[in-house]
Structure formats: structure tokens, C-alpha cells
């Protein structure tokens, strides 16, 4: 038995355009914001200093930093794909800040599923991060999925990896 046999393996043939990823909701606290900022080595005060954020930036509280939002987005997508899913591209736009006390909800829909000329199966996903009715972040992910349970997109290199 392989080490990954007990983990989720979502293969390319199991995915269709229009599929929805399982939603993820999370209650953000000040610890979420500060832990995320320090984990990503972001020392800027608006991510840990309430007085700076409110008085200097003019926002209501400290807020999630960009690299930590990327980490949340990666987690949201790979929860669905399993460890064989390999991110090729991740882009996001922050429209509004996410603050302590917010419950952020990630939703995602498959927008494309196609193989490239090397046989690598690519899935495009549109993601929204919302707090109630407020859309805070929109994102697009392009992730490679295995063509079979034994395929491993992580083994692709050079000309065989076209993210």
C-alpha cells in the first residue's frame, strides 16, 4: 500500500465544469490575523497593531494579510483535491478586508477541465471569499489533477509542466 492510499485522491476524470467545491466557513479572530501574518513573516503593523490599523490605515481593525489569504485559498482547494493535486497558478483580488469577528466563507466552482498537450489534466476554479453579503476576495486557481489514482502531477518537470 502506498503512503497516500488512505488520503483523498481526486482524479481528473471525476471532475466536470460546474462542480462545486465543499464550502469552507471559518470564524476569524485576532489570533487568526496575527498568526497568519507572523507565519508569513509579514511584520507590517496593520496586521497586528489595532491602533495603527485604525488610526493610520483608517480601517476598523487589523486585517488578514495577502500571503495568508493565499494560504487559505490553497488549503480550500487542496482539501478538495487531496495531496496529489498540484497548484499551477493562483491569483486573487482583495476587494474588502477581512477582520476579527468576521466569519469568512469560501465557495468555489469548477470553470474549466482540460488536458494539455503533455496529457496533464488541468482544472480551473473560481473562488469567492465572502463575509455575509460582502465579497471580500475573488480568486482563480489552476490546479493539475492526476489522470488516475497512481498518476502524480508532482513528478512533472520542465516541458511536461505547463502551469
Amino acid at each position: 500500500m502506498t503512503a497516500t492510499a488512505t488520503h483523498t485522491v481526486r482524479t481528473f476524470d471525476q471532475v466536470a465544469v460546474g462542480d462545486a467545491l465543499p464550502a469552507l466557513s471559518y470564524e476569524v479572530t485576532a489570533t487568526t490575523v496575527v498568526l497568519g501574518a507572523l507565519a508569513s513573516r509579514d511584520w507590517r503593523p496593520q496586521h497586528h497593531d489595532y491602533a495603527f490599523a485604525t488610526k493610520r490605515n483608517g480601517v476598523k481593525d487589523i486585517f488578514l494579510n495577502s500571503p495568508n489569504q493565499a494560504a487559505w485559498l490553497e488549503r480550500f482547494v487542496t482539501d478538495w483535491t487531496g495531496p496529489r493535486g498540484r497548484m499551477g497558478r493562483l491569483g486573487f483580488r482583495m476587494l474588502d478586508s477581512i477582520f476579527p469577528g468576521d466569519t469568512m466563507t469560501f465557495t468555489g466552482t469548477v470553470t474549466s477541465a482540460e488536458s494539455d498537450e503533455t496529457g496533464c489534466g488541468w482544472v480551473g476554479i473560481d473562488i469567492t471569499v465572502a463575509v455575509g453579503d460582502r465579497t471580500c476576495t475573488t480568486a482563480k486557481a489552476r490546479i493539475a489533477l492526476p489522470s488516475s489514482p497512481d498518476d502524480n502531477p508532482w513528478s512533472r518537470k520542465g516541458e511536461n509542466w505547463k502551469p
Binding site: 495568508n68 488549503r75 495531496p83
Partner: peptide, 16 residues
Amino acid sequence: GYIWTSCASVENGNPL
């Protein structure tokens, strides 16, 4: 250490 802290910050349990 940073990898684990970053995973912990978003509760990412990816076994990879």
C-alpha cells in the same frame, strides 16, 4: 518550522 506554522495558521492538514 515555518511550513508547519503556516499550515497551522490556516488549519491545512494536507499530508504532503
